[in-house]
Design a protein around this nucleic acid. Sequence first.
DNA 1: AATGAATGAGCGTTCATTCAT
DNA 2: CATGAATGAACGCTCATTCAT
Lengths: 197, 197, 197, 197
Amino acid sequence: MGSGDERVAGSYKSPQGRVLRAQGRRTLRRLLDAGLEAFATRGYHAVRVDDIVREARTSHGTFYLYFANKEELLRSLAIECAQRYEDLATQDPPIEQFVADFFAIYERYGPVIRAWMENAVNDREVNRLGVEAFTHIATTLGERLHRVGAPHDPATVGSLMALLERSAYYAVAAGTAGRDASSVATIVQRGYFAVGV
Amino acid sequence: MGSGDERVAGSYKSPQGRVLRAQGRRTLRRLLDAGLEAFATRGYHAVRVDDIVREARTSHGTFYLYFANKEELLRSLAIECAQRYEDLATQDPPIEQFVADFFAIYERYGPVIRAWMENAVNDREVNRLGVEAFTHIATTLGERLHRVGAPHDPATVGSLMALLERSAYYAVAAGTAGRDASSVATIVQRGYFAVGV
Amino acid sequence: MGSGDERVAGSYKSPQGRVLRAQGRRTLRRLLDAGLEAFATRGYHAVRVDDIVREARTSHGTFYLYFANKEELLRSLAIECAQRYEDLATQDPPIEQFVADFFAIYERYGPVIRAWMENAVNDREVNRLGVEAFTHIATTLGERLHRVGAPHDPATVGSLMALLERSAYYAVAAGTAGRDASSVATIVQRGYFAVGV
Amino acid sequence: MGSGDERVAGSYKSPQGRVLRAQGRRTLRRLLDAGLEAFATRGYHAVRVDDIVREARTSHGTFYLYFANKEELLRSLAIECAQRYEDLATQDPPIEQFVADFFAIYERYGPVIRAWMENAVNDREVNRLGVEAFTHIATTLGERLHRVGAPHDPATVGSLMALLERSAYYAVAAGTAGRDASSVATIVQRGYFAVGV
DNA sequence: AATGAATGAGCGTTCATTCAT
DNA sequence: CATGAATGAACGCTCATTCAT
């Protein structure tokens, strides 16, 4: 979950469609990481392209070589983030691990997720990605509740998602993501999965 | 800055310390409601002062007769909202009613609350108001959990607050606040207050 | 304030600390000259940034690439002007030449000097520059009076400075700076430097 | 030379032409004095109508009952001031008294005079008033120089006016008008009126 | 592939002036 | 006569995006 070693999901092209060589890929990665950093520090809206390029130690011109606009940078990050959550839903690990992973992804991609939550972006695709990823997670959790015979109506599942998202938000804000994950896992276990008690 | 050379922000006509007559009070109310409406529609950041004055059917200049800037309008709304939550915490009604009221307030003041959550505002006072109001609610709920012998450690209370806030958020977004309140009340009852079961 | 939420004035692209290439230096020079021209025509206060950029045949945005605001443009010009007067004080040429040079500098930088005189600017540094430059001149003249044995008490030196400044002002306004310089030089010679006559 | 007991030159009408009763005259006087005060404190340009009406403890609406606009207030003050200087020129007292009176008028009407000097106002009449009053003074002084056989060419007379005006300006700014007047009178005596010495 | 420079639409805010009571 | 309220044109400044090298 470190920063800087990721790779644009499944391609060596810039979002613009240009084919990238090694140097280009490094610049792209720098911009993505800088965006994440900047969004985390100031929030998506308050971030100016200038913040990003300064953080990435490159120029305005270069930014627009890789992204058509600021929103497209967010979209690229959203794709990465959605992929992580899709993976998590697919793996479907034990609840303790599940929450830990959920928090870890949130820790890295928090600003992107909040941009989803806040409907901050006028971009159908970005929002759809977020909804899909979270729906996938929700469905997976719903099925798991079903399997153990616990209540799994939409409202319940929704409340579980709310709990996860907000807890992650506050934990990350407080810098206690690692610690809090296991106590949230316990709450989830007791509050949602414990049946016949 | 405007065309004047230097002046303490808002000292012209001092928006805050004016005694208002009937007409003034009506205009102020129109602006507050317009702000709420506009924030709800587009989100605090995206709202232009122009949106607000158009909605309130008044002029740009008039806006600045009542508020030093957009943020101060938010602050006024925040004060109103915090008061509602303080009242709710003080009344401390049965859980069903509690959730219903929580949702009702959220329905009206959602944008303000989200501005708190998102730390959208660089205003210590606004954020403090939000934190205080929610803390008061949390404390009240914590004591209630304590009374019935249920777990009431900070993490648990925090998760309950997260649950309430996010559920309200989604319910309002989906336009199902009225309906969802009672099902969330049930979840809260079962998940947090049911003991010894 | 602009549409952004908060930011230290001028930190975007930091107008001051940039290294300029040839093109940038040309634009900067154009803006400085345009400022001088505009200040001369309409006076510092009445000048709109728009006047300056139109004169410099550039854009609003470009102006703020080079100066944080109108006042900073004035400051830059003030630095240039103060330097000229410092040089004059240092050279300390014969009185005829001295007055001619004084008038010539005034002809170019008049608006800046008047901004000093009128305390038009809320900028300690700008005013300090003006005071220092004129004090240097005054000191130099005072020493010269001393050398020839003429009265050189502060009030006398002050009156001499007032005479020079106002004469230059009126001469420039009347477009007779070249001509008037020598007649003022004569007055100064007779009125202040002629002793024991 | 006190403040508050003056009367609009030669009439009991407002500049608008309305006939004023006692209360109206008091309000008018309050506005004029407030204008003088405000101009002195912040300079003509920086003063807002709001400053004036607050100082005069009256309202915006009332201001425009007495003056068509801010400039007309300045014009009214300019008329008062010009009248004082005309009186001084007509009386033509001994030089010591002359300078003292010149400084005293400057002390009260400084901001108005500076508005003349700086051509701050786009009002021909105001500027003409200033020029006429000062020209009258200059002519009077020129004739007096002529009488004693001293040089009285335009440049000399101009330099004398410059000396008086700037000296008054600095003396008032420094709060030493009373004291400085006599030392300036000495300089004037020696530098301009002493002949054959 | 990269960059410094330029652009201008857009927004916040001010304040002289007018209006209704 | 007096006043609080309202107005909107005008201006300063920002920053996403494009351009020329």
